[in-house]
Amino acid sequence: MANPRVLHLEDSPTGRRRFINVTPEQETHTGIEAYREVLQQYYGQIEPRGTPTDLYVRRVAQRVIQATGMKGDWEVHVIRSPEKNAFVLPGGKIFVFSGILPVAANESGLATILSHEVAHQYARHSAEKLSQASLLQVLYIIASFFVDPNILQLGQAMSSLLLELPNSRQCEQEADQLGLYFMAAACYDPKEAVGLWQRMRAAEASSPPQFLNTHPSTASRIDSIQKWIPEAETRREAAKCPNPDTTRAFFEHQHRRSWLE
């Protein structure tokens, strides 16, 4: 029987078998390059450190990150833009567009979004996508030599399609599940995640948020989240969370001394 390590096969945090041939170091290097590019692209639009919006977003992110137990050089930035979007780069670089904050509506809604992004990092979804892309690219290059030179261009388009649709949706569903558990462990009420996605669904009617691109349908997402809530509530109880007012006051004090400042 073949050794899974030789085949670069491993299980995701939810038990899904996947192919990864990218090392954490390679993933981090890719993230650093992408991070520089994003900072350059949105130069002048990054919310300055210390503003109420910046402190608010980073404080919620800190709660979620602490709940995962992950270490690392985390960075959280708010981009002043009407786009309803948020994303994470390899290495824990989180960007939140200000346009999504009204949809988040409150701290629990924002925690849902940030937990989802942190879950992508936790599950190494970037490494998974990079691995799939590298494998498909090699296959299409070989095919272009021995079958048809034009297949390379078609293959690149198909690679993008495969990565952005079915494979990405698996990762998104996994990030929803893990994110729900993380926000619960951070002492947020997991039931509040349903409200966030209901607001997302309402936003779809006029201007679909970029955050929903290649994601599962919002209706199916809500159904899945409701099924995961009992487990999430168990994790919240295990975290021995105090009442909401006490929790909020504690983290408002902690953010002043946080490494995120």
Score class of each variant (00 low, 15 high):
120 H>D: 03
232 A>Y: 09
206 S>I: 04
77 H>N: 13
26 Q>L: 07
137 Q>T: 14
91 G>A: 09
160 S>I: 02
150 N>Y: 11
41 Q>R: 15
190 P>A: 08
257 R>C: 00
51 T>I: 01
252 E>A: 13
55 L>Q: 14
98 S>N: 11
240 K>S: 13
185 A>D: 13
177 Q>E: 14
220 S>H: 08
135 L>N: 01
256 R>D: 11
191 K>Q: 14
168 S>P: 05
238 A>V: 00
256 R>V: 03
69 G>L: 01
194 V>S: 06
93 K>G: 12
27 E>V: 02
144 S>M: 05
255 H>Q: 13
177 Q>G: 03
221 R>S: 04
247 T>C: 07
12 S>I: 01
209 P>T: 04
26 Q>D: 03
224 S>T: 10
38 V>R: 12
61 A>W: 05
237 E>I: 07
140 Y>S: 01
136 L>S: 02
224 S>I: 01
184 A>M: 08
222 I>S: 05
197 W>E: 00
33 E>Y: 11
55 L>T: 12
115 S>C: 06
187 C>N: 12
154 L>Q: 13
68 T>W: 08
36 R>T: 11
129 K>I: 10
260 L>Y: 15
122 Y>F: 15
17 R>E: 07
60 V>G: 03
167 N>M: 12
98 S>W: 02
158 M>G: 00
62 Q>K: 06
179 G>I: 06
30 T>L: 09
48 P>S: 11
145 F>E: 11
33 E>N: 13
128 E>C: 04
179 G>C: 11
54 D>N: 14
118 V>C: 07
244 P>Q: 09
178 L>K: 13
206 S>Y: 02
246 T>Q: 15
222 I>N: 06
62 Q>A: 09
180 L>P: 01
34 A>Q: 15
223 D>T: 12
121 Q>H: 15
55 L>Y: 06
65 I>P: 10
47 E>L: 05
185 A>Q: 15
231 E>A: 11
171 C>F: 14
108 S>P: 02
9 L>V: 10
211 F>R: 08
173 Q>E: 06
237 E>C: 00
216 P>S: 05
189 D>W: 08
234 T>H: 12
200 M>A: 03
